[in-house]
Computed example of a mutant assay.
Amino acid sequence: MDVHEIRRRHEDALLAIPNVTGVSTGKGDADEDVIVVYVTHMASSGIPAELDGVPVKVMEIGTPTAQ
Score class of each variant (00 low, 15 high):
residue 1 M to W: 07
residue 61 I to T: 11
residue 57 K to M: 10
residue 27 K to T: 04
residue 62 G to F: 07
residue 38 Y to D: 06
residue 6 I to V: 15
residue 53 G to D: 10
residue 31 D to C: 02
residue 11 E to P: 01
residue 63 T to H: 06
residue 22 G to H: 03
residue 28 G to M: 07
residue 40 T to K: 14
residue 19 N to H: 11
residue 64 P to F: 04
residue 31 D to L: 05
residue 40 T to N: 07
residue 66 A to Y: 03
residue 60 E to H: 03
residue 33 D to K: 13
residue 2 D to K: 11
residue 21 T to Q: 08
residue 54 V to R: 11
residue 28 G to Y: 02
residue 47 I to N: 09
residue 35 I to T: 08
residue 44 S to R: 14
residue 38 Y to L: 15
residue 29 D to I: 10
residue 22 G to M: 06
residue 57 K to T: 09
residue 20 V to E: 05
residue 31 D to E: 13
residue 23 V to F: 01
residue 4 H to I: 05
residue 24 S to C: 03
residue 10 H to R: 13
residue 9 R to L: 13
residue 49 A to E: 15
residue 9 R to S: 08
residue 2 D to I: 00
residue 51 L to A: 12
residue 54 V to N: 08
residue 1 M to Q: 12
residue 59 M to K: 14
residue 35 I to S: 06
residue 49 A to H: 14
residue 50 E to C: 09
residue 26 G to L: 01
residue 38 Y to R: 13
residue 26 G to I: 02
residue 20 V to F: 03
residue 3 V to C: 00
residue 8 R to H: 04
residue 46 G to W: 13
residue 60 E to K: 10
residue 38 Y to F: 15
residue 53 G to T: 09
residue 60 E to T: 12
residue 36 V to G: 01
residue 12 D to M: 08
residue 16 A to N: 14
residue 62 G to M: 05
residue 43 A to E: 14
residue 3 V to R: 04
residue 27 K to Q: 04
residue 43 A to D: 14
